[in-house]
Design a protein around this nucleic acid. Structure first.
Lengths: 210, 210
DNA sequence: GTCTATATAGGGATAGAC
DNA sequence: GTCTATCCCTATATAGAC
């Protein structure tokens, strides 16, 4: 088979298996079995398991960098926030293995840790910029300190929302519904600072997910 | 050596090593080495590694159950919230290995998962009760929906604060200072609902940790 | 590019002597 | 209660044939 294709299949299957079973529970042999190729073949394409994780991470990084772009040239509105949260949460969902064992995965690999920290920094800037934009547009009222603290909480809630869902449900899997709930949960962080009309509207929407 | 003592030493050392290196990275052989006992001896006292984790978890559970007790017979004030957050965060710190790899640890053990879910449920009740108490005392103003959503975010931020700290600092360890920052971060979740005087006071205090 | 076969290492766990 | 010795199994990774 063409080299590109096998390499690509390994990456796709690895991602799927990491997401389904958790990265620590997926071995190179499991991946090879699933693809019906030999372990030796897998090691022809990648130096080791960590190499696979790194390549998958790189794709995640590109995707998340895109999701974090803030629309320029105009002030953001609540619809923009909504849209951006969807982009970000869908990216997190597609690479949920990373978030499931975030500390463990990053602790084994300095490069990944540095890159993830960079993404968090970008996300913090993005969140703060959007909040400032909302304030400038009169949609939101908050001091600079409140904006900074809220941006930090937005980051934290978004980053660990899926883990929270998994851990809270005594049984049962986490699905796309929980993601939507997470988006609302993030919106509710900024709700107290919204103009009355917008806050009332948001609270009505959020009823369905409490 | 008396059986109680060796068993006790195993539990203490395991906890220390789990916290320092992460539970997935600590093997039964490592624990035995550290204690300068034989692996066979360790297995005389515990059926397997999971048994050790369960026993350590039980102690965590007792401790957290205590920290989540809400003072009865009077309305809570902000000082109570402050104190309780300290109790809870110190407990989380002492058993931080559990939070570091929460999803992974719980996914391997249904019993632990059920117990942790129970603790989260208790914590949610506790948080909501305290917020309602603050509202009843006129310290805070929020609708029932806002209280519910805020309690959920309090839970999430508290549960994953340490992981967030670890992951955000590109390098360097997490220490007790970060814990204090986490407590402020939780307080800032409820700040928007506080009476003006209390909110101003809190924001002043929080300056040091932004 | 892919396979088979295998080397190496380590972790979990037990048997049986002391 | 503790130790030594050991077994089993799995995971990573490589060598060399095809």
């Amino acid at each position: 088979m063409a080299p590109r294709q096998t390499r690509e299949r390994i990456l796709e299957t690895s991602l799927a298996m990491f997401n389904a079973q958790g990265e620590p529970n997926v071995t190179t042999n499991h991946i090879a079995d699933e693809l019906e190729i030999s372990p030796g073949n897998l090691y022809y394409h990648f130096r080791n398991k960590e190499d696979i994780v790194e390549q998958v991470f790189t794709r995640y990084e590109v995707r998340m960098d895109d999701a974090l772009l803030v629309p320029e040239g105009r002030l953001p509105n609540l619809e923009d926030v909504w849209m951006q949260l969807h982009m970000v949460f869908e990216c997190m969902w597609d690479y949920r293995f990373l978030y499931r064992d975030l500390v463990d995965i990053l602790s084994r690999n300095r490069k990944l840790k540095a890159h993830f920290a960079r993404i968090l920094t970008r996300a913090a800037s993005s969140a703060a910029a959007v909040l400032r934009g909302l304030a400038a547009g009169g949609i939101l009222r908050a001091t600079e300190d409140e904006i900074r603290a809220t941006a930090e909480n937005v980051l934290l809630v978004a980053t660990f929302w899926m883990n929270f869902s998994i851990v809270r449900n005594a049984r049962g899997e986490v699905g796309q519904d929980d993601l939507t709930h997470g988006i609302y949960q993030v919106m509710l962080l900024i709700a107290p600072f919204l103009r009355d009309a917008e806050r009332a509207h948001l609270n009505t929407l959020a009823q369905a997910y409490r």
